[in-house]
Amino acid sequence: MTQRVATAPLPAPKAPGREVDLPQSSWTKARERLAWILVAPSVLVVVLVALYPLFQSFRLSFTNARFGSPRPEVYVGFDNYIRLLQDTVFHAAMQHTITFTVASVAIETVLGVVIALIINSHFTGRGVVRTSMLIPWAIPTVVSSQLWRFMYNQDNGVINDLLVYRLGILDSPVAWIANPTTSLPAIIAVDVWKTTPFMALLLLAGLQVIPGDVYEAATVDGASKWQQFWQITLPLLKPALLVALIFRTLDAFRVFDVVFVMKGTALDTITLAIYARQTMIDQQYLGRGAAASVVIFLCIALLVIIYSRLVRVEET
């Protein structure tokens, strides 16, 4: 919003005293040209390596293009999309992606709020906790996926060891990753581990802007801690919460790394991104794969629009 105000054409120079010596028109013209010269390289790169490929993906999704095929590309209309709708693997991928996104974002948000509230209170060693929370975020997803795969191991993994032999919660070791009923929850748990601390740190930044006086006044008025949380903290945290939610949802919906490293293209956990890559690269069906990636793009665009509406409603 502030950007739009800033770009509105200025009716007259705001402070005429400052730029007396310079003729206004040539001055703004020179500045405008300079601005474009400065912006041009970045815009050019973005247009060439991001925007153009994006248009290409849209175009290819309506063709029967294949990699390494001498056959000429033919426009096939919505055939690729219709095929997707008929493909049970695509259905499974859609279902896993939605489950993954909803579950991981919901758990991360609730845990993130709880952890942010805990770190927000003053105690010795708070810095240590905050530092330790950056570690999961800093570890590459490939590495953390391999680490958790190692820990999930059925025979000699530390998780089964803890749950079965040390704590006695389970009767026998579970093949967390191989078993189709536990594989997706196990992967969600890895994502929760990796991103909850990050979510908590974003929310902590939101908590720290809330002035302490508000709580002091509420305490004086006899509000309980629980009431304070629902009446003060949560409403004031809403902007930060919404932003964190947007970023997490967009990230979760395109999930690839963690699932692919742990399970490859296995049918019990395949996600939309994995499906798209498998179709395009492994099977070389460029057109159909492009259609799948366009579907992901459109879902994410839809999420962005819904969320930005929410934020705007929040602002007014």
Partner: peptide, 22 residues
Amino acid sequence: VLYLILSMTMFPQIAILGSLYQ
């Protein structure tokens, strides 16, 4: 330009994988 840059920070990598590969 601002909207172009901002939208590019949000779109998924997978959306351009095939065409970039090409």
